[in-house]
């Protein structure tokens, strides 16, 4: 496949890609630290993950195989549009199979299948600053990161425990990267947090509106914040997937009729289909 000659390769101009590439390299060298970059206007609205798209566009080469997921699914409008965008502007092959992808752009999930050294996971990030809701002044959050002063976040989680008896955060659950930087994992379910720890794949995070890039290199310690008497617990709905029978994947609740009937199915559609195929083969 070749890319549409009416576009620059992967849409962005060379000087923008170079600037983003330099930001990515510094982000990798300082795991968990948010590096500012000069975000460009993209032909998609902000909510569609322009930060992730700019990171993908800067990393992508003609031999890559791209997978795009939105909430675990390959076939939402958002995921389909982003795949089509890169097929057209970069001529890359795309896939829905996690195992075949070299770059996976994601919104709100980490695939269930363990990622490998040959893969890069690119997260779309709406709010990169983990302290944003606790400290609105950007200059102040920057100072807190410089001093690794994360008392505010500990107080917030402890108030959760006092109020609810447990930590009530189930998405964007804050993590410490290499025991130095507090980082937002983007709005993935807390269930996915443990997958970030010592992942063989490189993890890159792009926030378009807030103009920040950050990274977790492969094999890097990622610890969900918790307390000795209230350890972190990755939560999932206590059900089995209706389609593949899985009891250890993250499930979405789906309404099946207008009488309130509901079932639980895997949010990771590729993984679920793979399991269904394995099940059929075994029967």
């Amino acid at each position: 496949m070749t890319h549409d000659p009416g576009y620059n390769f992967a849409y962005l101009d060379e000087s923008t890609k170079r600037m983003i590439r330099r930001a990515i390299l510094k982000a990798v060298a300082i795991p968990g630290h948010q590096v500012p970059f000069g975000s460009r206007e993209m032909p998609l609205p902000y909510g569609w993950g322009t930060g992730g798209i700019q990171v993908t566009a800067s990393v992508l080469g003609p031999r890559d195989v791209l997978k795009v997921i939105d909430q675990g699914s390959d076939d939402t409008t958002n995921a389909v549009s982003i795949r089509a965008f890169f097929r057209r502007t970069a001529g890359v092959a795309t896939t829905e199979r996690t195992a075949e992808a070299t770059i996976i752009q994601t919104r709100h999930r980490i695939p269930e299948r363990r990622l490998t050294e040959g893969q890069i996971l690119v997260y779309q990030v709406p709010i990169p600053e983990p302290l944003a809701r606790l400290e609105p002044r950007i200059a102040e959050t920057r100072r807190l990161h410089a001093m690794a002063d994360y008392g505010l976040m500990h107080v917030k989680l402890y108030e959760d425990i006092a109020k609810h008896g447990h930590i009530a955060t189930s998405y964007s659950y804050p993590v410490m990267v290499n025991e130095r930087y507090l980082m937002s994992p983007s709005p993935i379910p807390a269930f996915d947090n443990p997958k970030m720890h010592m992942m063989p794949a490189l993890q890159l995070f792009g926030a378009g509106r807030e103009k920040r890039i950050y990274a977790v290199p492969p094999y890097t310690a990622v610890r969900s914040l918790d307390f000795e008497d209230h350890p972190f617990r990755p939560i999932r709905a206590p059900h089995r997937c209706e389609l593949c029978g899985s009891g250890d994947t993250y499930l979405d609740e789906v309404l099946v009729d207008d009488k309130g009937g509901r079932i639980f199915v895997c949010s990771d559609t590729d993984h679920c289909q793979e399991r269904q195929a394995m099940r059929e083969a075994a029967e």
Binding site: E14, V28, G61, E117
Partner: peptide, 19 residues
């Protein structure tokens, strides 16, 4: 090939910096 060679060189540096 300035566009594709730059991309490939960057990917090699990214891989090197990541590992």
């Amino acid at each position: 090939d300035p566009v594709l060679d730059s991309q490939a060189a960057f990917r090699a540096v990214l891989e090197a910096m990541s590992r």
